[in-house]
Simulated assay, not measured.
Amino acid sequence: MHHFRLHFLAAAASAAFLLAGCETLQGIDTQSLANVGGTAVKAMSLSDGDIVTMSNESCTAMDGKNKVAASSSAYVKRLDRVVKGMPATINGKGADYKVYLTEDVNAWAMANGCIRVYSGLMDLMDDDELRGVIGHEIGHVALGHSKTRMQTAYAASAARGLAAATGNSALKALSESQAGELAEKFVNAQFSQSQESAADDYSFDLLTERKLERKGLVTSFQKLAKLNEGSASGSSLMSSHPPSAARAAHMQKRLDKGA
């Protein structure tokens, strides 16, 4: 790791302590306090193996918190049909699809190949649109964005570690279910504008390579843009940066150019 990154993270942790104020720091377990900075630093040095392990645990935790559609479900059968022809592996990890039965409009993918699609999204999208969104999520994994997102989720536990050191029992209880916490942090985190745009282009290129319909990338974002009007949804699909309308326009421009 570059030394400047280590110094930056250490400084950031120190700044958090100072902002907390002297009274807050009184009586804090010094070992727990030291672990806060260590967590932030460790997050940036997690190996690919660490990320996969954490993704395995986080995905299992999310499956336990949600209603997973049975293999006989019409949703699962439709998803199987939609992803036929899509990559069976991503960065060497097998693609593992499941459907969550919920009205929420969302989908996400982790670095271990865990891909989860919400039935609310499936109800909103036709097959081509759904395939485009899934290609986008695959792009986040293939391009390393999901790894970075997990690092960010892990680093976020540093703040909870500081609070737990002050004796906050609720946060201590949360720390006992780290996998669930990481999963929630991961799913609710936002990708950067450049990452979202890169994943859009990845999906477009993937569909082009596989000779699959690409128009769904335009209409899916148009639907999300319309749905997002006046919505306070926190899902990564709904809280789009850049806005869904702009992303739809970019996909249309590529279609018009034929590339």
Rank of each mutant, 00 (worst) to 15 (best):
F186T: 02
S157W: 04
A170Q: 09
A158H: 09
D128N: 14
S146I: 09
D128Q: 11
I115Y: 13
S177Q: 13
V105C: 08
N112W: 10
D126M: 05
E176T: 14
T102F: 08
A109L: 06
L121A: 14
L182M: 11
M110Q: 07
C114W: 05
E103H: 14
Y97I: 03
V141W: 04
Q178N: 02
G94D: 15
S169P: 00
E129W: 07
L124R: 00
S119K: 10
H136D: 01
L124W: 08
L101F: 01
G132C: 08
Q151L: 00
A153F: 10
D128G: 05
N106V: 01
D104C: 03
D123K: 00
T148I: 09
L182H: 01
Y97N: 02
V133L: 11
A183G: 10
L171P: 00
G167K: 09
V99Y: 02
T102L: 03
D127K: 00
F186V: 01
V117D: 03
D128L: 06
E181Q: 15
R116S: 14
H145Q: 04
E129Y: 08
S146V: 09
K172N: 09
S157I: 02
G167C: 05
E137A: 10
Y97H: 07
A109R: 14
N112V: 01
A107H: 08
A111K: 05
S146N: 04
G180Y: 13
V105T: 12
L143V: 00
T152C: 04
G144M: 12
I138V: 11
C114Q: 06
A107T: 06
V105Q: 14
Q151M: 09
A179S: 15
Y100H: 13
A163S: 06
A153G: 10
Y154D: 09
M150F: 13
A155Y: 03
S177E: 08
S177N: 13
L182N: 08
Y154I: 02
K98M: 09
S157G: 02
L182F: 02
E129F: 04
G139H: 12
M150Y: 10
R116Q: 12
F186D: 01
S157T: 12
H136N: 06
Y97R: 10
G120S: 06
H140L: 04
L124G: 00
M110K: 06
G94P: 14
E181S: 09
F186W: 05
G139R: 13
A153D: 13
G113P: 01
E176I: 07
K147H: 11
G144N: 12
G167H: 08
A156L: 10
S177T: 10
S175K: 14
A107G: 07
S146E: 11
S146G: 10
T152Q: 14
R131I: 11
V99T: 02
G180N: 13
D127Q: 03
I115Q: 05
R160T: 03
A170G: 00
H136K: 11
A159V: 01
